[in-house]
Amino acid sequence: MEIAELQNKIYAFCEAAKGKKKLKEKDIIKGVSEAEGVPGDEVKKAMRLMIDVGKLMYSYGGGASSVEIPSEEYLREKGLIK
């Protein structure tokens, strides 16, 4: 699978969980890997690239870390949107 396509799948996976479940890295890796038949390492790599550019972000709450779609506030603070 092309990386851009894989990243779209990852994004959709996170969007589906938004407000319902806090996803850990491994939930995304496992979930997308199983659904798309892509090796976990590739999902991880694609996801990390998304995190590096603010397409996804690490979050923290309830004493544990998770990965989620960034808020506009976050993107503005990082200078990624005006």
Binding site: I51, D52, G54, M57, Y58, Y60, G61, S65, Y74, K78
Partner: peptide
């Protein structure tokens, strides 16, 4: 208050909100 979501781009730790 409880720690919020803050950090530097790409990292998931090192800053405690």
């Amino acid at each position: 208050k409880h720690g919020g979501i803050v950090g530097v781009l790409g990292y998931g730790g090192g800053v405690i909100g």
